[in-house]
Design a binder for these strands. Structure first.
Lengths: 349, 349
DNA sequence: CTGTTAGCGCTTTCAA
DNA sequence: TTGAAAGCGCTAACAG
């Protein structure tokens, strides 16, 4: 119940001054060895712990970085966070995680709060595709003392770095794979294409169709929120078409699962009647009872680590003038599983 | 790039003193309306933002609470966190999330870090079943100015509140259900029973067997880490027994999934040959292709909300002497699904 | 209703 | 090698 001991307490105890204690504790070279050891020993005895808040106020740095994501309850984001932590913990940073639940207001709020608790940087995957139009956001970005790094869901802002995968390639490769399976009428369950990542997946899909001389049909592209139930609804629409698709490429595993359920519920076979491919390699795609789901590996841990590395580079740049943003793009990996592996057609590599 | 504006800047601008500015900004009643409005207006114009770190140093409160969990990438914990956030955000608190990845050291580290950044409270689900034996932990707990609240994985420490579900009842109900299905040789995939929650699930299981006049066989209880692969391994052991079980009650959905995979891989039928029941109502238990998994709803969001409420009560108690710990116990709900619903036996309610 | 002053705990420049 | 003093930004007790 007694108050925490401060450097003053231990200074008094030793009849020296607080600055000496501070220096001793920080291994300042210009301190006598004896004094240093004495101080450190008594500090230990008195259960001294440095008050990080005072330090933060003094130095303007907190050794905390903030991470903002739409949500943490999916494997992709929690893996990215894992990567960030792995990279930053050894450097003495602490990671503060915030969720937006896809609410624009909460997102800006979170940025505010993090800045207020003086984080040394913010790594985020945006929830509002038009964040750059948000006034408060811009105000915050204007005096960009604090490094901001986007991952996955990014927007292009001059001077702000990002880490993403090559979503175009992911879309292209997946579509090409479905075409290789003999599919000719491939639908795409997209998402809000104001987000670059969804736009690029869509463009990759489209390009693959064109390159293979297949017809691109706008009716086969449905914007679908990344939820199982929405996947079911959109798929229902697709299956009700006069000529339903023979494959579905979804930009979300959750949506792919919804598609899966809807197709099964109609007595159709996967992959024989319709092939399915998702996105993100969520664990359940691997856990399916019979029909595991083809998907894209986005290397989330890697992504987190690199985002953290970019932060570490930027946080040390004093001359902000010559700070140039850096856009790292990882290569996705197509993971082919049963939902798109027709038994009678060999899988092309 | 210019420095952030402080109350001194706006004081100078207005030729008044900083304390007046502070009061005006905080809607202190003893300030003239005109002054208040003037200050607030100029504050807005000058893009003033309160420095929370200074506030924290001054007041010793940060308006942050820390949440420590083993991991965030499962539905249970992320839902609890969701509940905590829902309760605390409206009160102006910010939630800092830390993961231990089940590492004892990281757990104590996290507590340290959180205390250092002066969180106003810590809500946690422990990773180290013998946390109370940890010296640093005890040191931290001794001067318990900061409320600490356990949820789910708790330990009994005098003066520390907790929120859990009635794990004994959950174990009992599940086992009783399996017995109602006609199962006579029910195995239990347990977990480290130094944790109260696993011990209680086990005890509930055991009691149900006894109450129904069934034989309790220690060989049918295997301690299994909460991972899919471990579930497979343990199940393999069970199936290799001379008389294998006709039902498996797992204290983890992930382990139940492993059991599921192993059973299927041996060509056995669920639920006809073996019934399965898991724990936690992870989404995938509902998403299974044919055989959805019976499980226990732990009402995680509710749990989070209540933990947050307990915190709010405790944080306002000035007289720490009469602080009495509170142990809230929620009632679990058995969710019966196909993995334990034998077609020929009506489900008893 | 407003100003003065002190202090939260720490680091750091300047002196000694 | 150590001490003295100032200051990070804010609030609050006291005085007026």
């Amino acid at each position: 119940m007694r108050k925490k001991t401060t450097i003053y307490d231990i200074a008094k105890e030793l009849n020296i001054t607080a600055s000496t204690v501070s220096r001793a504790l920080n291994d300042n070279p210009k301190i006598r060895k004896a004094t240093r050891e004495l101080v450190q020993r008594t500090a230990l005895e008195m259960n001294y712990e440095q008050n990080k808040v005072a330090l933060a106020l003094k130095s303007g740095k907190s050794n905390n970085v903030g991470v903002i994501v739409p949500r943490i309850d999916n494997n992709f984001f929690s893996s990215v966070i894992r990567g960030i932590e792995e990279e930053l913990y050894p450097k003495g940073y602490h990671v503060i995680i915030c969720q937006t639940h896809d609410l624009d207001d909460l997102e800006v709020n979170n940025i505010h709060s993090l800045l207020n608790v003086q984080v040394d940087g913010i790594l985020m995957s945006i929830s509002n595709a038009e964040l750059e139009k948000n006034e408060s956001f811009n105000k915050l970005i204007k005096n960009k003392k604090t490094p901001l790094i986007f991952f996955d869901r990014k927007i292009d802002i001059d001077g702000i770095s990002s880490v993403t995968i090559d979503d175009f390639k992911a879309g292209y490769d997946t579509t090409q794979h479905l075409i290789n399976q003999g599919c000719k009428r491939i639908a795409h369950l997209s998402n809000n294409r104001l987000f670059e990542i969804y736009k690029n997946r869509y463009l990759g899909y489209k390009q693959a169709l064109i390159d293979n001389g297949l017809n691109f049909d706008e009716d086969l592209v449905i914007e679908t929120e990344s939820k199982v139930i929405e996947g079911r609804k959109s798929t229902s629409l697709l299956l009700d078409l006069e000529i339903p698709p023979d494959a579905i490429f979804s930009s979300s595993d959750f949506v792919a699962l919804g598609a899966f359920q809807e197709i099964k519920s109609r007595g159709l076979k996967i992959p024989e009647d319709i092939c399915i491919a998702g996105f993100s390699n969520e664990p359940f795609t691997r856990f399916m009872e019979f029909t595991t789901i083809t998907t894209i590996n986005q290397f989330p841990i890697e992504m987190g680590r690199i985002a953290a590395q970019v932060f570490l580079e930027e946080v040390n740049i004093t001359n902000v003038k010559n700070k140039k943003n850096k856009n790292v793009v990882l290569t996705p990996e197509l993971i082919i599983r049963k939902s798109s592996s027709k038994p009678f057609i060999p899988i092309k590599s």
